[in-house]
Amino acid sequence: MKHAARSLLLMAAWCCPCVQAAADPSGPDQVRVPAGTYIPFLRIAAGPDQIPVRSFFLDTSPITRGEFLDFVRDHPTWRKSRIKRLFGESSYLRDWHDDLDPGTGLDEPVTYVSWFAARAYCEAHSKRLPTIAEWERAAGSDSRVITPPPERHIATPVGFAMGVPAPDLPPPRLNVGEVWEWNLDFNSALVSGRASSSGTASSLFCGDGYRARNADDYAAFLRYSLRSSLRADYALRNLGFRCAL
């Protein structure tokens, strides 16, 4: 009887390869984000109104200090003392005691990382950084309806603006809202369609409000505003990342 049951199970697995393909290829730490649509927050004259986003996998949580420690152990060029200034400013891993000593909080999101380092981490794991379209599709839900828990609100006053999972995501739960996160194309969203004096719209001001999709989605404003203030070598106290696939 026992034997028969096992055969049945095996047969079921063999019969339904589709189920296996849809499963998470890299363990329980990723969520499969279904295909969807991203409506750019800022309208660009020549740009599309909607951008289709294909199904992809996204880490459920930001990369931790412990995980980043493993990475710099294997990739010495990304250590605190070795990184080229071009790829990470002086505050890179500022809260680490030493190259291989992050101190406490190994389970907390790693911050003080540059875009270059974040990208290198994801590539080393055969992944990549999520694009703005992907990130906003998965975690940029309109947060006007969200009431942040009070304790979180005090700890990080803009926690809810840092991300809220889209309502249509399957389990496991996407863990967002603790830190800002790098996107692959973080600096592309605000390049203006029209020429400005510097050639790029490096800022997002009230003047841009008329281009906003939802001028009252202030959480989105804050995310886009923060992204547009960044340079790829910046390393900030509350800016981390996660990978996509």
Partner: peptide
């Protein structure tokens, strides 16, 4: 001047 200085003083945390 443009933006009353708003454009050129737009800075990320820690900068």
């Amino acid at each position: 001047g443009p933006g009353g200085g708003g454009d050129v003083t737009f800075v990320a945390p820690g900068h």
